[in-house]
Every structure is written in structure tokens, then in C-alpha cells.
């Protein structure tokens, strides 16, 4: 049960990352590698402010804004200075590596014995259960602190998802979604597609930083390396989510992103349990995304060959 609960918890925390990448990758069609840097930025900002005695909620909020700021800069590199899409992200990611070291002052900040956003939930749950250190969930004993983290991650994830869904269905959100789909049409409707791109990347990286801030608090440290490969991780989650539930509507797409992240985390947890070398994790993830990206094309051409063959027969 412990492994499943922790996979769910990490999945819910990383769901913010996937939702953020849904905006950049799927809606703006912007392959934004800033993600690798802004996740760490969120973690380091949250860590440094928390160990300086800030409230963990305030620290998380500041982390979100720092990520949004980084995303805004990537957007400006792309729209104002006409730097290629992928290069804008790479520049920002590289710069953020140094920024993160500066923010933390060193490469790793442990967050042991500090307050985290889980504290509030734990107080409530302890109050309800009357001070037990373990509770029973479907017959499994689970420590109250682990359960509190799970509940906190769940609540934050649901609130974020609802806000995101609401936003994407507003006039502004609709304009944002159209920007990636057809920039020419968007301009003809009087929308500044450059501002929309900047706004979208800000939102996206704000969510990514939220994910980083929560992840640092969950795992008990912020590390300058923790963002590496996170963009591919998010991609894998998006692809799984779409395969699971489809993209019929905004609500379904967002739900898919969350489920996809959890499912992917579960797969990883199981693979690790079965003896997958953790060092191979990123290779496996990259391979998975590669297959997920090319498989639909293969299937299509295979189908064409079969049907085409029938037609000619």
C-alpha cells in the first residue's frame, strides 16, 4: 500500500507539471524546455523561503510566481526577439541552472524538520482520528503523515484543475487555445498572438513551478538537478492521459493529464520494484515517448497498406 500511496501522491504533485505542459505543448503548440529549469526554480524558491521561516503556503505561492516569470521571459525571447521556439526554451533553461544555484546558495537544500503545506492537513486529520499515528484505509495501515500528504496533494490538484478548466473556457482562455491552433485567424479576430503566447508560457511555467515547490516539500529537499528530464516526463503523462480518456472536451483533457501522470508514476514504481535500474529511468521514459509519438504513424501506414492491398486485390 505504501508504494501505491506514494505513487499516487507523486502523481498528483506532478499533475501540475502535466497540466502546465498541456497549455504550452498542446494548446500553444510550443515545445517548451524551460520546464526543466522552472520546476527546479519552483523547488529552490520554495526551499530557500521555507528554511528562512516563511509560511510554506506563501513560499509555494512565491515559487509559482517565479516560475511564471521565467515562462514570461521565454515567451519574450520568442516573440520580441524572434529567437526560435526551442532555442528560447534552451536559453532560459540554461540560465535558470545558474539562477537556481544562486537562489539556493548551494546545490542542495534539505527540508527536514521544517513546516510544509501538509502541516495544516495533518493537524486536521490528527484531530479527527484522535492522535493515532496510523489509520486504516481499505484494510491497509497507513501512517497519518503519509495520508496527510496524499490528501493535501489531492486537494491542491483538484483546485488547480478546476481553476485551469474555468480559465480555459473563458473568453481569454478561448483566445489562448486558438492561438496555437491558428495564429492567422487569431490576429484577424483582433487578438495579439504574441501576448497570448507570453501569457500561456507564464501560466504553464507557473504550474510547473507549483509542481516543483510541492515536490521539494514532499521529498524533503530541493536539488539543482531535480528538473532534468521533467519535460519528457510531462510529455509521457500527456500522451498516456490522451490514450486513457481522449480529448473530447477541456474537462476530459485535464482529467486525462492528471490520470496520465498518476498512471505513469505507477508504471515507474512497479518497474523499479521489479528491478529496473533507477539510472535507466530517463532512457526508458525517452524510449516510451518515442514509441508513443511514432506508433500512431506506424499504425496509420500499416492500416493503409492493409486496406490499400485489399482495394487493389
Amino acid at each position: 500500500m505504501g508504494i501505491v500511496l506514494s505513487a499516487f501522491t507523486i502523481g498528483l504533485i506532478l499533475a501540475a507539471l502535466t497540466m502546465g505542459m498541456l497549455i504550452s505543448f498542446r494548446m500553444l503548440r510550443f515545445t517548451d524546455i524551460t520546464v526543466d529549469g522552472s520546476l527546479t526554480l519552483g523547488a529552490s524558491v520554495a526551499a530557500i523561503t521555507i528554511i528562512n521561516g516563511w509560511s510554506p503556503w506563501l513560499a509555494t505561492l512565491v515559487a509559482v510566481f517565479s516560475g511564471a516569470f521565467a515562462g514570461m521571459l521565454t515567451g519574450l525571447l520568442y516573440t520580441r526577439f524572434n529567437i526560435q521556439m526551442i532555442l528560447s526554451g534552451i536559453l532560459m533553461m540554461t540560465a535558470l541552472y545558474s539562477v537556481n544555484l544562486r537562489v539556493m546558495g548551494r546545490s542542495n537544500i534539505p527540508l527536514l524538520d521544517t513546516k510544509t503545506v501538509t502541516g495544516t492537513t495533518e493537524t486536521i486529520i490528527t484531530g479527527v482520528t484522535g492522535g493515532l499515528s496510523q489509520i486504516n484505509i481499505m484494510g491497509w495501515p497507513v501512517s497519518v503523515s503519509d495520508f496527510s500528504v496524499f490528501v493535501t496533494a489531492l486537494v491542491i490538484c483538484i483546485i488547480t484543475a478546476l481553476l485551469l478548466k474555468y480559465f480555459l473556457l473563458t473568453h481569454l482562455g478561448t483566445a489562448l487555445r486558438a492561438t496555437g491552433s491558428n495564429p492567422q485567424m487569431v490576429r484577424a479576430q483582433g487578438i495579439n498572438h504574441k501576448s497570448m503566447t507570453v501569457l500561456g508560457l507564464s501560466l504553464s511555467n507557473g504550474l510547473v513551478a507549483l509542481s516543483g515547490a510541492l515536490l521539494a516539500q514532499y521529498q524533503g529537499f530541493a536539488d539543482v538537478q531535480m528538473g532534468i528530464g521533467m519535460m519528457v516526463w510531462g510529455l509521457a503523462s500527456i500522451i498516456i492521459g490522451e490514450a486513457l480518456v481522449g480529448t473530447r472536451s477541456i474537462g476530459v483533457t485535464i482529467t486525462g493529464a492528471i490520470l496520465g501522470t498518476i498512471f505513469f508514476r505507477l508504471l515507474i514504481a512497479i518497474a523499479l520494484r521489479w528491478g529496473l535500474n533507477p539510472n535507466d529511468l530517463k532512457l526508458v521514459t525517452a524510449l516510451f515517448v518515442f514509441i508513443a509519438l511514432v506508433a500512431p504513424i506506424w499504425v496509420k501506414s500499416l492500416r493503409k497498406t492493409i486496406w490499400g492491398g485489399l482495394k487493389n486485390a
Partner: peptide, 23 residues
């Protein structure tokens, strides 16, 4: 038009052509 979006969403975009797009 934006292909992936619905007819009504496309028209909703046009209903505010050149105007502020509120939340």
C-alpha cells in the same frame, strides 16, 4: 477558423473581435 475548437467557440472568438476578452 481554429480547426480543433467547436463552432460555438470559434464564433465566440469573433463576437469579441477587437474588444477586451474578460475572465
Amino acid at each position: 477558423t481554429a480547426a480543433g475548437m467547436t463552432i460555438s467557440e470559434n464564433i465566440a472568438l469573433a463576437m469579441r473581435r477587437g474588444k477586451r476578452r474578460p475572465l
